[in-house]
Amino acid sequence: MQYTSIIFDLGAVLIDWNPRQLYRKIFDTEAEVDHFLTHVATSEWNETQDAGRSLAEGTELLVQMHPQHEAPIRAYYGRWKEMLVGPIGGTVELLHQLKKQGHIKLYALTNWSAETFPIAVEEYPFLDWFDGIVVSGREGMRKPTAAFYELLLERYQVDRSQTLFVDDNLRNINAAAALGIESIQFTTPEAFAEVLYEKGILQRPA
């Protein structure tokens, strides 16, 4: 198969983002961190901001629901940068190789708040290597909504039959596959590299 495009997820594929890194500084025990992220500042709540709700509105709604946790709730976005662990170096190197090779277009499709994404752009220059990035918070929709994938395909005239999509989340992988986009679930940079070698997208090192 001749591939012309690769669509990357960003979080947990190229960028290690983990709210636990912040909340381990705030709470005394891992159990307290677990409880807060499972029952208060949940992934579902965060994803609503990823889909376009403002950080201020999301924060105030959660404070009203859990006033006893006001300080750690406000820290979620007030100290959001502390959740950025860093780049996932092995995947960044693969992205660099693909960029240098030059014959495959590189895109990113990410669930990310429009208000925090500029922080990542400032922190990680490799985000400039993409030929296009579609950010959920800017578009008011997110993965796994089919229209979000279709938006990228249409905006950049991407041929889905010649495209590989990589994401760590199986929910997002299944949604892309249902749209006819070949998809692989990211686990490690090494495993992703093997896929690229086996498919002839990159040449295996001698």
Rank of each mutant, 00 (worst) to 15 (best):
residue 174 N to I: 00
residue 38 T to M: 11
residue 137 G to A: 08
residue 24 R to Y: 08
residue 147 A to N: 09
residue 155 R to N: 09
residue 147 A to W: 00
residue 95 L to F: 05
residue 15 I to T: 05
residue 165 F to D: 02
residue 29 T to F: 09
residue 84 L to C: 11
residue 75 A to G: 01
residue 189 P to K: 03
residue 196 L to R: 06
residue 188 T to M: 01
residue 194 E to H: 10
residue 164 L to V: 09
residue 49 Q to M: 15
residue 107 Y to P: 01
residue 46 N to G: 02
residue 43 S to W: 14
residue 176 A to W: 03
residue 123 E to T: 14
residue 127 L to V: 08
residue 41 A to S: 13
residue 185 Q to P: 02
residue 58 G to R: 07
residue 108 A to Y: 02
residue 97 Q to T: 01
residue 88 I to M: 09
residue 125 P to K: 10
residue 104 I to K: 01
residue 36 F to K: 04
residue 191 A to Q: 15
residue 72 P to R: 00
residue 203 Q to K: 15
residue 118 P to H: 10
residue 161 S to C: 06
residue 175 A to W: 01
residue 6 I to W: 05
residue 46 N to S: 13
residue 155 R to A: 11
residue 156 Y to R: 05
residue 174 N to K: 13
residue 52 G to T: 11
residue 12 A to R: 14
residue 64 Q to E: 15
residue 136 S to G: 10
residue 18 N to Y: 09
residue 172 N to T: 06
residue 22 L to F: 09
residue 96 H to A: 11
residue 119 I to G: 01
residue 148 F to V: 05
residue 196 L to V: 09
residue 68 Q to W: 01
residue 70 E to C: 04
residue 109 L to D: 01
residue 47 E to D: 15
residue 114 A to C: 05
residue 72 P to Q: 04
residue 162 Q to Y: 10
residue 85 V to C: 11
residue 164 L to W: 03
residue 57 E to Y: 12
residue 95 L to S: 06
residue 189 P to E: 05
residue 132 G to N: 07
residue 167 D to S: 08
residue 68 Q to H: 11
